[in-house]
Computed example of a mutant assay.
Amino acid sequence: MKKFDNGNDRYDYSAIISRGVYDWPGQRRLAVYFALNIEGFELGRNPGNDFTSMPSAPYHRGYAYRDYGNRVGVWRIHRLFEQFEFPLAILANGSVYDVCPEVLDAFRRRGDEMVGHGRTNSERQADMTPEAERGMLQDVRAMFERYEGRPPAGWLGPFISQSPQTPELLKELGWTYMLDWWFDDQPMWFRTNNGPILAVPYPSMELNDLPAYVNRGASDKEFTRMAIDAFDEQLEESAQYPMVYCLSLHTFLTGQPHRIRQLRRILSHIARHRDQIWLTTPGAIAEHVVQLPPGTVPIR
């Protein structure tokens, strides 16, 4: 019988129950990180649905809604994470450095990780030629080097969009991990023609406030329940093998006053288990995996 070819040559099937077991730092088994999307948009270019109807030019409602996140919502989130002393991964568009640099200044002072997230959320990699995409990635890298003193280790494409050549370009230009592919609860090596790049788990579909609220119509309380239930379940499962839990937030969604109260409930619950988990960032997760003995994380 002819072997079925599913067209995916990027990684092999690997059952989580059949892999080698390892620990995170402190002999913990559940790594927990929070990703905060801080995005910039261009007025007149479609920023996405404004959640009431499909927008039309000049897309001012969607632009204004998202701008609220950088003017007001982000400061509520910043204050809450300061109170709980939780680290953050900041998924930053390069344009934020130009439009509202004081936002990123505040998280830099906290020592949070800065993750590359495109030039602006008004463009998608899937729409770019290889030359244009390479230029965009080079622009982002140069901007991070200018403001952060070093290039970003991690990448998440705007709209979680990739072109066929994105993994190769990321590896070529020095990125060590990406968040675009969520196919596991553990970091996995991902093949490129330029050598492997690490895929760190990121909740692109589930524990991400944007698809939860906008695409699936979850209520604020439902999202809180999902976030807490997932944490509790993964904490129990981590007795068997290491796992990654991540909550993905957007400033203009979770930064609304009614949702900050829900986020406080989530963080309060997780804080009660602080001594059982590794509160970290995706960059630290990637660094830990790279240092594991060869073969611990499957790659062929």
Rank of each mutant, 00 (worst) to 15 (best):
N8T: 05
D9T: 13
Y11W: 15
I16P: 07
I17C: 12
S18K: 10
W24K: 08
W24A: 08
W24V: 09
P25S: 03
G26R: 05
Q27S: 11
A31L: 10
N37F: 07
I38F: 01
G44P: 09
G48F: 01
Y59N: 00
R61D: 14
G62T: 01
Y63C: 05
A64L: 15
G73C: 02
H78L: 13
R79Q: 15
Q83W: 09
Q83Y: 10
E102T: 12
D105C: 06
V115R: 00
G118E: 02
R119W: 12
E123C: 05
R124V: 09
A126T: 13
T129C: 08
T129P: 03
T129F: 04
E131N: 09
A132C: 14
R134I: 06
L137R: 03
L137V: 04
F144I: 03
R146W: 09
R146P: 04
G154N: 02
P158H: 03
Q165K: 10
P167A: 08
L169D: 07
L169M: 15
L169A: 10
L170V: 05
L173D: 05
G174S: 06
L179R: 03
W181T: 12
W182V: 15
D185F: 09
Q186E: 07
F190D: 08
R191D: 05
T192D: 00
N194S: 13
G195Y: 00
G195N: 02
P211C: 00
P211T: 01
Y213T: 10
V214H: 12
N215K: 12
A218S: 15
A218T: 13
E222V: 08
R225L: 11
A227K: 01
A227C: 01
F231A: 06
L235V: 06
Y241M: 13
T251A: 13
H258Q: 13
R259A: 04
R259Q: 01
Q262R: 06
S268K: 12
I270N: 05
R272H: 12
Q276V: 13
V289E: 04
L292H: 02
P298M: 02
I299W: 12
R300N: 14
